[in-house]
Amino acid sequence: MTVKTSIPQDEKLSAGHLACQGCGATLAMRYALKGLGTDTVLVIPACCWTILAGPAPLMSVGVNVVHSPFACAAATATGVSHGLRARGNEKTAVVAWAGDGGTFDIGIQALSGAADRDEDIIYVCYDNEAYMNTGIQRSGGTPAGAWTMTTPGAAGAERPKKDLDAIIEAHHPRYMATATPAYPEDMVRKFKKARDIKGFRFIHILSPCPPGWKYESDETVMLSRLAVQTGMFPIYEVEEGRFKLNVPVAKRKPVAEFLRRQGRFRTMGEPEVAAIQARVDAAWDALNKRA
C-alpha cells in the first residue's frame, strides 16, 4: 500500500503558490522544508519568495515567516534567533531564505556579520543568478556572458560570478554546503544535518529559473543536473573545516551542454565557452586536491 520514497512524503509546500511554471526555487523550498520540519521560522528578504510565500492570510509554506527588508535577512534572523533563545527555546530552527541579490550584493554585510558572530541561524541562498523577481537584472551571482536586462547585447555580463562560497568559507562557518534540486536526497539530508548543528550554517542552492535563463520550463531539473555533471556547480559540504565532495563527477560533460540549452548564453561564441571550460577545469583541479 505505502510506496517507499527516497525523501519524506510529508508536504509543507502548498500547491497554488504563485511561482512561474517549472520554478527551481519552489523545488528548493519543498526539499528544504522536508529536511527542516515544521519547527522552523523563515526570514525572507525581498526576493521571489517574498511573493511565493503568499499574500496574507494565504500561505504557501506551513511554517512561520518573517518578511525582512532587502539588506538584513541575516540581521533579522539573528534577532529572531536571539529572541527565541532568550525565551528558552533552543530547538526552533531560524532560517534566512534569500536570493542571490539579497546574498551576493545587498545582504552581504549583514550576512558577513552574522557569520562572523557565529549566530545560531541557517542562511540559505537560493541562487538563480540574477534579480529575477524584478525582471532579470544582473547580480553578483550572474555568470560572465549571460544576458540580463542590464547586460544587453551580444557580450552579456562582463564580470565572472562572484565566488560567494569562498567568501563564506573564509568566515569559518560551522557548516556549509551546496545543493541543487536535481539531487533532492542530498538536499534533504543537508537540511536535516544543518538543523542539528548549532551556530552559523550556510547552504548555497543553485536554482534554475526558466524565464531568467530562457529555457523551456520542463528542463529545470535537467539543467540543475547538467550544472553538476558539467562541473559548473560542484556539490560539496564543509563541516568544521572538513571538506567533502558529495557528488563526485568521474567524467565531466563539456560545459557547452549546459550553456547551449539556455537562451541567456545564446550569443556566446566558442572562445567564451572555451574560457568557461578552462575556468571549470581549473576549479575542479583545486577541488580534487581538497577532496
Binding site: 504563485l18 494565504l58 506551513g62 511554517v63 512561520n64 532568550a86 525565551r87 528558552g88
Partner: peptide
C-alpha cells in the same frame, strides 16, 4: 536574567491562515 523566568503572557503565534491551495493555478 533569562526571559523564561518571567514568561510572556501572550501565546506563541503558530503558522496559521489558509494554505495557498485556495488559489487554483490550473488555469495557467
Amino acid at each position: 536574567p533569562r526571559l523564561t523566568e518571567d514568561p510572556l503572557k501572550t501565546p506563541l503565534i503558530i503558522a496559521g491562515g489558509k494554505p495557498m491551495s485556495a488559489n487554483k493555478t490550473g488555469n495557467w
